[in-house]
Amino acid sequence: MMNMHLLGIPVVGMGSQPEEDDELNYMQMPQGMATYRPTILPEQEDLADYPQVFTLLQQAQDLLDVGAGHLDLSAAQPAEKRLLNQILGEGEVSILFDTGNGGHIEIQETSLPGVWWHRTLDALKTCVDESVEVAGIPDLIRNTTFANAAPVLALPDVQHLPEGVINAPGLLAELQEQVQQQYVGHVINLTLLPLSPEDLECITQTLSVGKAAILSRGYGNCRITATAIRHVWWVQYFNSSDTLILNTLEVVVVPLVACASSEDLADSRERLQEIREALQ
Rank of each mutant, 00 (worst) to 15 (best):
L56M: 10
A75N: 12
D46W: 11
P51A: 08
K81V: 09
A48Q: 08
Q61M: 12
D65T: 13
G91H: 01
L47D: 05
Q77F: 13
E80P: 03
A76K: 00
G91D: 00
I87Y: 03
G91P: 01
E80F: 09
S94F: 08
N85I: 06
A60L: 06
S94Y: 07
V66N: 07
N85K: 08
E80M: 05
Q59M: 11
V53S: 02
R82W: 13
T55Y: 10
Y50I: 07
A48P: 02
L64K: 00
E45V: 12
R82Q: 13
A68D: 14
P51C: 06
N85Q: 10
Q44N: 15
P78N: 03
F54D: 05
I95S: 01
Q86G: 08
I95T: 01
D72I: 12
V93D: 01
A60M: 06
I87Q: 02
D72V: 15
L84W: 03
L73N: 00
D62M: 07
Q44Y: 15
L83S: 01
L73H: 01
Q52M: 15
K81M: 10
K81Q: 07
S74P: 06
Q58K: 12
F54S: 11
L57M: 03
L63C: 02
L64G: 01
I95E: 01
A76S: 08
L83G: 03
F54T: 07
L73Q: 02
A48F: 11
D62C: 10
R82M: 10
Q86S: 06
Q86P: 04
D65V: 12
P51I: 12
G91K: 02
A48N: 06
Q59N: 12
D49F: 11
A79C: 13
E90K: 07
L84V: 05
Q58C: 15
G67V: 05
A79M: 13
T55C: 10
E92Y: 14
D72A: 14
L84Q: 04
I87W: 00
Q58A: 15
E45I: 12
H70W: 15
Y50W: 10
L73K: 04
E90C: 13
D46K: 08
T55S: 14
Q44I: 14
D65E: 08
A79S: 14
N85V: 06
S94M: 11
P51E: 05
T55P: 04
Y50E: 03
L73D: 02
G89D: 00
E80Q: 07
E45S: 13
H70R: 15
H70D: 14
K81D: 05
L56Y: 04
L64A: 04
E90W: 08
G69H: 03
E92N: 14
L73G: 03
Q52I: 10
A76D: 05
A76V: 08
S94W: 07
D46Q: 07
P78Q: 04
S94D: 06
A60T: 07
A75I: 12
L64N: 00
D72K: 10
D49G: 06
Q52Y: 11
L64D: 00
G89H: 03
D62R: 10
L73T: 01
D49H: 11
L84T: 04
